[in-house]
Design a binder for these strands. Sequence first.
RNA 1: AAGCAAACCGGUUCUAUCGCUGCUCUAUACGUAGAGGAGAGGAAAGUCCGGGCAACGUAGAGCGACACGCUUCCUAACGGGAAGGCGCAUUUUUCGGAAUGCGAUAGAAAGUGCCACAGAAAAUAUACCGCCUUUGCAAAAAGGUAAGGGUGAAAACGUGAGGUAAGAGCUCACGGCUUUGUGUAGUGAUAUGCAUCGCGGUAAACCUCGUGUGUUGAAAAACCAAAUAGGUUGCAGGCUUCGGAAAGGGCGGCUCGCUUUUUGUCUUCGGACACCUGCAAUGGGUAGGUUGAUACAGUCUGUGUGCGAAUGCAGGCGUAGAUAAAUGAUAGAGGUCUGAUCUCGGUUGGACACAGAACCCGGCUUACAAGGUUUGCUUCUUU
Length: 134
Amino acid sequence: MNTFKKEERLCSVRLIQSLFHSGSSFVVYPFRVVYRFEKRDVGAAQVLISVSKRRFKLAVTRNSIKRRLREAYRLEKGAKLLPFLDERKWYLAFAIQYIGKQEEAVLSTLREKMITVFKKLQHESDRMDQHLSD
RNA sequence: AAGCAAACCGGUUCUAUCGCUGCUCUAUACGUAGAGGAGAGGAAAGUCCGGGCAACGUAGAGCGACACGCUUCCUAACGGGAAGGCGCAUUUUUCGGAAUGCGAUAGAAAGUGCCACAGAAAAUAUACCGCCUUUGCAAAAAGGUAAGGGUGAAAACGUGAGGUAAGAGCUCACGGCUUUGUGUAGUGAUAUGCAUCGCGGUAAACCUCGUGUGUUGAAAAACCAAAUAGGUUGCAGGCUUCGGAAAGGGCGGCUCGCUUUUUGUCUUCGGACACCUGCAAUGGGUAGGUUGAUACAGUCUGUGUGCGAAUGCAGGCGUAGAUAAAUGAUAGAGGUCUGAUCUCGGUUGGACACAGAACCCGGCUUACAAGGUUUGCUUCUUU
């Protein structure tokens, strides 16, 4: 199901602080992703979508970009992100920051980029698995 | 009719699918599921004023700081609004005035300061030219003088007469602004008459006078409260037949042997206190949650009062409530404006602003596409 409820969002202040304090990051233009994996009983993901006020001055443009990012995440996560997390019992907390331009925030390109982000995350989790098994 | 300016109105709709946040109903394994219905603005913005609300503070008075500053009224209140007074500017005029715009619009007659450049002089006056008197053959010197010259945004209130050596509000008449007193009109600002005092500007320079202000803001504040750690209280335990048993630690030659520990202090020998362990209760408090928090200084219609801002009465309406923060995405069909095209009402293209609630109200300020209404100005056409 393509839902996006509150459990799938990162809301707790402490979790967000610890994520930004100890998480790793990479850039897939136009996104900057900060992430942290943990082993849990059930695979899950909590995401934080952020568009900085310094880049986009008006609240209206910030809102619209955030909504498109959320829509892209909602449409793509079911097929590309959750299956491998569930398979390997990973809990993933991550933040997506938008660092592109306003004109580039079109839904179709955002969806493509979101898929590459997920692939990169999967690659990272593979490396973590290898590290753990060693 | 067109253009420009100002003010006001206005702020694209519907359907389907997927999704988000509350609400109501039903079911429920209490996790949720299904159905229904709701879900950004005129400025939600800037956070500039005022108020509600909350916590803390609070004998009274003064000083200081800050804000405001013509009058009356409206309002819960305001630095907001309405009506009016006064001044200035523009336009118009039938020369009486009228319209529009602007004004921190109390005090410069309490005191201090400042007034670029130019100019003789920018404020207890001064003397460059000029005028007058005296001295001197003359050049010039001494003294008087603000009428005249030129400078400047502003030149010692303006005009005329008297007066004088020449002059000067020095005196007088008329006029301008102004202080104080007083008569009349007005609720009042103020207007106007009489008498009287005075005559550069600047108070968004200090200042004086009057009025007001306790501080902090919903991240206020109230309540519930997991796990873990620690606090407090209560209960239980800290062997024994005195030979040793059991458990833990150390060493060695490691199925064993040796060695050591099993709380301390006080004691009237009953215990008391401290310490350690376990169990139970409990106060504070963190994560988290609930309230605050969405029904009202509400809004619409009618009607009464008032010049008006407003307000009385009656009736209708219920209209977001998130909290790392919902109100979205996609597709299709319209709507308004506009361009192209031709078979003249079809086809096709483009545009649709400013901008996103965060405790709630009243204002102010700023932003705003197309379109519409009203007013003013300009141009053109017709009668």
